[in-house]
């Protein structure tokens, strides 16, 4: 029950979905199953929310390090839940959009969620610089190739490339940095991406087979209760 039923479910579902692609009357099954996944995922949201609350309540009650911040998390969570799930502060009817302008939900979204998310994302500008400072060093042949390719593209993506090599005559125009940058993107970059993709395609196919056949079953855990 604990192990064989799940393995059988995986096998049947996986095999049916593979064959459904080739059988027109079953065409829509894949579509249905994706929808099923989304519905299950909503239940998972609730499981996750419950876990989040538990983690922070435990932290709070045991006065673990930084426990006052757990209050912030819990308050934020409950406030957003009230605004979102229970539509408190939403002037519209029950079928009004959740993201109605002026609703509490949208306000929190605009002035808390968005600035936090975008700034976190914007940190990348700094990290990309510090990573290139550290990583692009001519340590060996591979690293040097990496460095040179990156440098050419960096130059080529700005007006600088044109300024530096704009004088190169038309019959040698591939040596103009912007053209060279495009050529690198279109040829070696494309070749490398494609080789990686072919590998990934096969990797996914083989991994899926191992899962469907029940050879790979770590995710199910052991035979215990």
């Amino acid at each position: 029950m604990k192990r064989n039923v799940p393995l059988a479910i995986t096998f049947i579902v996986g095999a049916v979905l593979i064959f459904s692609v080739f059988i027109p009357p079953m065409e829509n099954w894949g579509e249905d199953f994706t929808l099923f996944f989304d519905i299950i995922a909503v239940f998972a949201f609730f499981l996750g929310g419950g876990n989040l609350l538990r983690v922070h309540l435990t932290k709070l009650s045991r006065r673990k390090q930084d426990w006052p911040y757990s209050i912030v998390t819990i308050m934020g969570f409950l406030l957003m839940l009230a605004a979102g799930l229970f539509r408190i502060g939403n002037p519209g009817d029950i079928n009004a959009s959740l993201t109605e302008q002026g609703s509490l939900f949208q306000t929190i979204y605009d002035s808390v969620f968005v600035p936090l998310g975008s700034t976190m994302y914007a940190l990348l500008a700094f990290f990309v610089a510090s990573a290139s400072y550290r990583a692009f060093r001519a340590k060996n042949r591979e690293a040097t190739i990496l460095l040179v390719a990156a440098f050419i593209i960096l130059l080529g993506r700005t007006p600088l490339g044109t300024i530096v090599t704009g004088w190169v005559p038309e019959s040698f125009s591939i040596l103009q940095i912007p053209n060279l940058a495009i050529w690198i993107m279109n040829s070696p970059n494309l070749a490398g991406q494609r080789a990686i993709m072919i590998g990934i395609g096969l990797g996914v196919v083989s991994m899926s087979l191992r899962l469907i056949l029940g050879i790979e079953r770590t995710y199910l855990g052991g035979d215990d209760k």
Partner: peptide
């Protein structure tokens, strides 16, 4: 196996499994 992120892992990590190697 997301090729877009491989360059960053290569740059910032000690070991990187490239694409298929992950599977």
């Amino acid at each position: 196996a997301r090729p877009a992120q491989l360059p960053f892992f290569i740059a910032a990590c000690d070991f990187t499994l490239i694409g298929e190697e992950l599977f």
